[in-house]
């Protein structure tokens, strides 16, 4: 595991700075020679953890980004990565839990780390839910009273929270999709606009906000109110175009609505920079300006495809017109995105 020493000092008007978080607590990541920064770590199991703010960390390299809240109440994860990297993720979380000084006390290196209490899934895809089963089994739900009396296994494993659609898709074998193991299913779901943890966790409120028919039909944003950190799932990524999962209820307008909602929610610290920090489904830590650029790109491509549809152009003709050519060198081929936009806009209502 690599834990970057970067600690965001967004005080004042500094762009960002770095400071040591402790004496030898973290292995130092050295980016090496100056010049073009390396690409973000691929999903190859090379785990990297970057401090975001307060108790919040970004864990990358295990599939989709995983957001961690690690503190006196234990561990909360947003998403769980690919199944094959769950052991590495678990080891990284345990090491981090041992290393960080969660209560202003001297580090107790030999103390067992606190358990995983919650896993929140932003959506159903396997690169965000694949580790559910193993990570849940390594955790624990704190409960009591009638609950433990009536439900014998209520305290077994961490709780998994998600929109109801995630549970529906994971628990059903439809459309050729295999049903996932029951231990990986969400244990607590919501079906309206939002859901809150019923109490502070690691000193702050945590809210799940449903974004209808965006990347899928079960997308949740997860907002850490005290830290002012927002996890977006794959509604926003910095590594490519959005994937509009039409088969699972996604739509381009849903993605745009969600991106505009995010822009309404976040507040920059100064000059569209800093302030609310955003952890995308894939890629680097971002802020208001990064999401705004992404929203602009999706809107412009949507408008171009819409204009082509109005002219009566077929999907192949639209692809051939290369409406994403301005961004392809940055995000790769736009064909799948264009097809998603086209099919989304031409779908029968």
């Amino acid at each position: 595991m690599i834990v970057n020493r970067t600690h965001w000092m967004l005080a004042g008007i500094a762009a960002f700075g770095m400071s040591s978080l402790g004496d030898g607590l973290f292995a130092q990541q050295n980016g090496g020679a100056q010049g073009r920064p390396a690409n973000p770590p691929a999903a190859n199991g090379e785990i990297e953890i970057v401090p975001v703010r307060g108790h919040i960390y970004l864990l990358a390299g295990a599939g989709g980004n995983i957001t961690l809240s690690v503190g006196p109440d234990g561990v909360l994860l947003v998403d769980s990565g690919l199944a094959q990297y769950a052991d590495k993720v678990l080891a990284a979380i345990r090491q981090l839990s041992r290393e960080i000084d969660v209560e202003g006390q001297p580090v107790k290196s030999y103390a067992p780390p606190k358990p995983i209490r919650f896993i929140i899934n932003t959506h159903v895809h396997a690169d965000h839910t694949g580790g559910n089963e193993k990570l849940r089994q390594a955790g624990k739900t704190f409960t009591g009273g009638n609950v433990t009396g009536d439900i014998a296994d209520a305290a077994e494993g961490a709780a998994i929270l998600a929109h109801e659609s995630v549970l529906n898709r994971m628990s059903a074998s439809r459309g050729g999709e295999a049903r996932t193991a029951a231990d990986a299913w969400p244990t607590e779901t919501y079906y309206k606009d939002s859901m809150k943890l019923s109490h502070f966790f690691n000193g702050e409120g945590v809210r799940l906000i449903h974004m209808p028919n965006a990347h899928t039909d079960g997308d949740s944003l997860v907002y850490f109110r005290g830290s002012d950190v927002l996890t977006t799932g794959d509604i926003f990524v910095t590594t490519g175009y959005p994937f509009i999962d039409l088969e699972r209820g996604g739509s381009v307008q849903g993605i745009l609505n969600a991106l505009n909602y995010i822009l309404d929610l976040v507040i920059p610290e100064f000059r569209t920079e800093g302030g609310t920090l955003i952890i995308p489904g894939h890629g680097r830590i971002s802020d208001t300006a990064d999401v705004a650029y992404y929203r602009d790109m999706v809107t412009i491509v949507r408008d171009r495809v819409q204009a082509s549809i109005k002219k009566g152009m077929t999907l192949e003709q639209v692809k051939a017109s290369r409406p994403t050519a301005d961004w392809d060198p940055r995000y790769g081929s736009g064909d799948r995105f264009v097809e998603g936009v086209y099919r989304s806009l031409t779908a029968k209502k």
Partner: peptide
């Protein structure tokens, strides 16, 4: 905004750090 140019030999941030 303030543009700091560091001369204290610090390492590069992670590519996952904010731009």
């Amino acid at each position: 905004i303030d543009n700091p140019y560091y001369m204290d030999g610090r390492a590069q941030p992670s590519e996952l750090a904010p731009h």
